[in-house]
Write a protein that binds this DNA or RNA. Structure first.
Lengths: 341, 341
DNA sequence: TACGTTTGTGTAATCGATTGCGCAATTTAA
DNA sequence: TTAAATTGCGCAATCGATTACACAAACGTA
């Protein structure tokens, strides 16, 4: 069992001091070339690896950044994290925390990450309670770089990377209109979160811009699940004047909708068009592939990481606030293609 | 900007020393109750949080564990990681590393994690080169707990958590036989990796046990992709005596196979049955849902984490080697159900 | 009164690195 | 030959915690 080599071990072997070894290894110009070389060789021989913990304690930089997401086993967040990791490797390590959409857990996570002395926090917000707000503000006060991605919060001095949910929704709705749909329903998700509110607004505006009346009965705040989609469709079909299309803020709800519509014998896309959001892998795998708005998660992760790096190089007294908005991309598939593909 | 409070700050305020503060906070019985209480109150007032880096350096335990996976944006690995994180929270933090199936990156990752002084490494092996083997052995020599999950390697003193790939394959193949299939092909993946070799063996044995001749021409080492599945089917259909079923080691290849078969006008499951492996979310979403072997990724992650914890409590001189094998579970769906569901 | 215990705190070393300051030895300039 | 400047390296503090050891005060006991 090989004990770890430290600079002291090297110093002892060379009859010198740790200071010299440290300087030699760091290419300090005050050290003669001969000693420098000797130290480096001995270090290699003894298989010396610097102890990052010691370095971290000394410098105050841990080399870790924390990423807080609702959960990791969703294609979207996993891809974002991949983007972050790819961008930061090998300078920073990514520490993952999941909130499971639980406000307490979100607070705990922030706390633990701060204690662990992370050099920055990248998070997708789950909760909008004031307690969480306070906690998040503490991060900013401590001058720990904080960046929101996807689910952001409007907060002074905090940068964010999001996609243009409004545009995505607008374009998707517009597409449905172009396909000849006139009674377009919307599954909106929890609109207290900005992203869902923005999608709703984009949807609504697209209707208005095309002289289609907005109908409140067509809007449901569904959860992002197959079951929620099915349940909402059931209600929609009972309306006096049922819709002929759905723009869903969730691919899962869109899938549920399609399943339910089929069971009612409704033909897609001939009689009914469906558009999802998120571009989950399954949407393109279905025989009846589902149209969806892509959120470029990898790119989002990369951008978030880049913004973090920028923020690091920023003078501390200077508050930097950068809002990056990525363009969504429509993936038009069978579920909404009445014409040709 | 609130500077961080240290035990020295607390000591100064109370006109005592850091040692006393430290002891008081750690409930050391040698400290009088009055001082203890006073210290705790002051600590709370000053919003003291212990610096984990200092603790880590002192104790030699970082409180981080490294997880190395081929990639994180796959449902399987993301779910495993979720299991790990859930099990270890909040005692340990998970640091993610991706190899992208690249051997150099795998070596780098191990190195970085060791330098970062992680308290353990949980990995799913990508590569079988001797260079990687050597690196992995170094981890064991350093007495850093190492646990393989899913893709393991046979190595002395290393524990592992896997599923019984052999059984999974055997049962899936058996099921196809029960459905009346007699010419069963196999997409095997890279058989230099244990998991794929074991699946192949299970497949083969099931054939033999049921008096079906094993046909080498029916076996393809496909990649785990839709395209690979399609390509393999194309070749299979050109055979003199084409198969009437496929057991695929990859859900993605199975999906590709189904797509290709359909384009050839072959009816599933009537004329041809397909069984996948991995139980990716999309398999159950398809209209023609795909039968698949579930690998219980969450459970696998949890188990791996548990084994890690056990290993920690193990006396260092005692080599512990635990091999946990989870039972796979068949999810039988339309793609292989000729009878009823 | 004197001595041994117990109790509660302080001193200082330690974990493994970095770095300002000081001091020899050497080189350069006068 | 002597003073000044440069070069190369060692000493010791620092980052923020823990902990073995020492030691004084308070106590009990003979």
């Amino acid at each position: 069992m090989s004990k770890k080599t430290t600079i002291y071990d090297i110093a002892k072997k060379l009859n010198t001091t740790a200071a010299t070894v440290s300087r030699a290894l760091n290419n300090n110009p005050k050290i003669s070339e001969s000693t420098c070389k000797l130290v480096r060789e001995t270090a290699a021989e003894m298989n010396y690896k610097p102890n990052k913990l010691a370095l971290a304690l000394q410098s105050g930089k841990s080399g870790n950044i924390g990423v807080i997401v609702p959960r990791i086993d969703s294609n979207f967040f996993a891809s974002v994290i991949r983007g972050i990791e790819d961008e930061l490797y090998p300078d920073y390590h990514v520490i993952i925390c999941q909130t499971h959409e639980d406000e307490k857990r979100e607070i705990e996570n922030i706390n633990t990450l701060l204690n662990a002395q992370v050099d920055g926090i990248l998070m997708s917000v789950s909760n909008v309670t004031s307690e969480n707000d306070r906690m998040i503000k503490r991060v900013v006060e401590k001058n720990v770089p904080l960046i929101f991605f996807d689910r952001k919060k409007n907060m002074d001095g905090v940068s964010s990377v999001t996609i243009n949910d409004y545009d995505g929704a607008y374009l998707a709705t517009k597409h449905l209109i172009n396909e000849g749909c006139t009674r377009i329903a919307h599954f909106s998700g929890d609109r207290s979160l900005e992203i869902f509110e923005n999608r709703f607004k984009g949807y609504k505006q697209a209707l208005l811009d095309n002289e289609i009346e907005f109908n409140e009965n067509y809007v449901f705040q569904t959860k992002s699940s197959v079951e929620a989609g099915r349940a909402a469709v059931e209600k929609l079909l009972k309306l006096e004047n049922p819709p002929d299309a759905i723009f869903s803020s969730s691919d899962f709800a869109a899938l549920g909708a399609i399943q339910e519509l089929k069971e009612h014998g409704i033909k897609i896309p001939e009689d009914f068009c469906v558009f999802g959001f998120g571009n989950e892998p399954f949407t393109k795998f279905m025989e009846l592939s589902i149209s969806s708005v892509d959120q470029s998660p990898m790119e989002m992760g990369e951008m978030a990481a880049k913004v973090f790096l920028e923020q690091l190089n920023n003078p501390k007294n200077l508050k930097m606030e950068k809002k990056v908005v990525l363009n969504p991309e429509l993936h038009i598939r069978k579920s909404s293609s009445r014409h040709s593909l």
